[in-house]
Computed example of a mutant assay.
Amino acid sequence: MSLRLDAVDVLSKWDAPDDRADRLRRAYLTHLAAHEDGMLKACPEAHVTASAVIVDPARGQVLLTLHAKVRKWLQTGGHCEPVDRTVAEAALREAREESGITGLTLLAGGAPVGLDRHHTPCAVHLDVQYVALAPPGSTELISEESLDLQWFAFDALPTGTDDSVRALVTRAREVL
């Protein structure tokens, strides 16, 4: 199965938690039906991306990255690559690359927990969001894409964190 077909399958089966998420889900499916390259950065109009908020449930914390280009605290994530077989695999790859943590696993049975559509300098990102569990005792390592990595309590996110990250952290707590 191709990455695009995996995304269509995942989004078709996903039980959206509310009307807003369901509208986004349907918009993503419409985009993928209209754009053969809709999963990749090469699609200039919009493309599907994959992200994961990394959690340490024992400490009640999430790991956020101070993104070098955006200069905001965000979950890990980014563009899908041709080597990715699934959207979940893309989210895990991005999480490992940006956090330096190996052994991450996806929660919620590997299903997405949310969707977020946002504008970036390259195009509109149609983000498929996951929750990743950090193994006990894991150590993070800042990548070139980050200015900083920090653990934050679920209810003490940094000032200026946008609503999409706050909503994702709330969903992560619910999944736990």
Rank of each mutant, 00 (worst) to 15 (best):
T102A: 13
V113Y: 02
A132T: 02
V53M: 08
L106Y: 04
K41D: 01
R59Q: 13
H47W: 10
E94I: 01
V48F: 01
V113S: 04
V87S: 06
R171H: 13
W151K: 09
A167L: 15
Q75C: 10
T86K: 09
S138Y: 07
L3W: 07
A34T: 11
Q75E: 11
E140M: 14
A123S: 13
L11C: 08
P112L: 03
Q150S: 12
L147Q: 11
A167C: 11
L168P: 01
A33V: 04
G110Y: 05
D6L: 02
A33H: 14
D162S: 08
R59T: 10
T161P: 06
P121W: 01
L64C: 04
G38T: 05
Y130T: 00
C43A: 14
A58N: 00
R59G: 15
A33N: 15
A132P: 03
L141C: 12
T139P: 02
L40G: 00
W14Y: 14
R117T: 06
R85L: 08
E140Y: 10
A90G: 08
L92G: 00
D163M: 12
L141T: 14
A88W: 10
V87I: 14
L104P: 08
F152N: 10
P44W: 01
V128N: 01
A88V: 09
P135H: 09
L147V: 07
R23S: 11
T30H: 10
V62N: 04
D18F: 05
D6G: 04
S164P: 00
D116Q: 01
P57I: 10
D155T: 06
G77N: 00
A91Q: 02
R23Q: 14
R26S: 13
K41Q: 08
D37P: 04
E94T: 04
H47Q: 01
L11E: 06
T86F: 08
A134S: 14
E81W: 03
G78F: 04
S164L: 03
P17S: 08
A50C: 01
A68F: 07
G109A: 09
V70T: 13
E174M: 13
V124L: 07
